[in-house]
Design a protein around this nucleic acid. Structure first.
Lengths: 166, 166
DNA sequence: TTCCTAACGCAAAAGGGTTTGCTTTACGGA
DNA sequence: TCCGTAAAGCAAACCCTTTTGCGTTAGGAA
């Protein structure tokens, strides 16, 4: 059932936007009963939040070429590719609405990945800078200006980050 | 009526989060009839989007000291101050959910302001860089990690932007 | 002042979302 | 195999949201 609900939600969120999706809609598309969804998740925002979280597998292998810049380039490209898929972008937007005072899972993973890169490379660059100047611009574009997200976005951001004076 | 609805929505969005606000709630708090809201805005997402837009007055005077860096610093500080107010942050998050294929008004203004700075200063820096490395990090923090938004955030970002090799 | 129009209040009705009690199914351990 | 438990289906009831028709009010133009 989880799988059916997940893909139903993904489809609907892409088709209509998360504000216009309802529990009965999801239930019908998933071939389950609305009451099953209510019992399991309580309400729609909770459901959306949970589904939006289980994306971009935290256990996937990270780039490890030995060169920080190379790795960041691959990693950023991965990020862009992921959110270029409309479903993922829509879920991110939905997650943004429910984010708030505590860190949302969506991005905790991104932060910890950034920390790992930095530690592995020996702090030539700060993890905050990776978040501010690579992750943030990408996420910002995904949410507010998806059409500015291109194949060159990732490379451009990494290059700018590395062109700063040391 | 617009004013009453606006402040009612702002209060409720701050109290409950935008997902849990309904039209009748807003109507009651604003002292108006729900049907008036429906006739004027059509539905809740539209209302939220419009209210979230009319913030950070587009007609306000922009910093103009003659020095680009100085101006950007003041401008970024304004942005941070604005979104440090919980109501404004909540409205931004709500707006994020409804943003999508066309540019949301929330940030069109920011973009045009950036363009103005660049033109006035004679293109020593690109407007895209201002968006990517100042606006985006701020907005990202507002939405996903509000507690990382401090008094030094704006200054730090501007400094980093200017420390790049020309 | 009078008329016209647009916006709002009011109330009833329609529609859809949510809750709830009960039944049925599926799975795992005696 | 035979329970016992947890999850899901089903259907009815409940409640809130949304729509709609109509009366009222406010503001502007003749």
């Amino acid at each position: 059932m989880l799988a059916a609900v997940r893909s139903a939600l993904e489809e609907l969120v892409k088709e209509k936007g998360s504000e216009y999706v309802t529990v009965p809609m999801i239930a019908e598309r998933a071939g389950v009963n609305p009451s099953s969804i209510y019992r399991r998740w309580g309400d729609l925002p909770t459901l959306i939040n949970e589904i939006a979280t289980y994306r971009l597998d935290p256990a996937r292998p990270l780039p490890d070429s030995g060169d920080l810049r190379q790795d960041l380039l691959a990693w950023a490209g991965e990020l862009v590719t992921h959110y270029s898929i409309p479903v993922n972008a829509a879920l991110l937007r939905a997650g943004a609405a429910t984010a708030g005072e505590q860190e949302s899972d969506c991005l905790r993973n991104r932060r910890s990945e950034a920390v790992m890169f930095v530690e592995r490379a020996g702090a030539v660059i700060g993890s905050d800078e990776i978040i501010d100047h690579i992750v943030a611009p990408v996420i910002y574009r995904v949410i507010f200006a998806p059409w500015t997200l291109t194949g060159e976005t990732a490379a451009g951001l990494v290059e700018q980050l590395f062109s700063r004076t040391p």
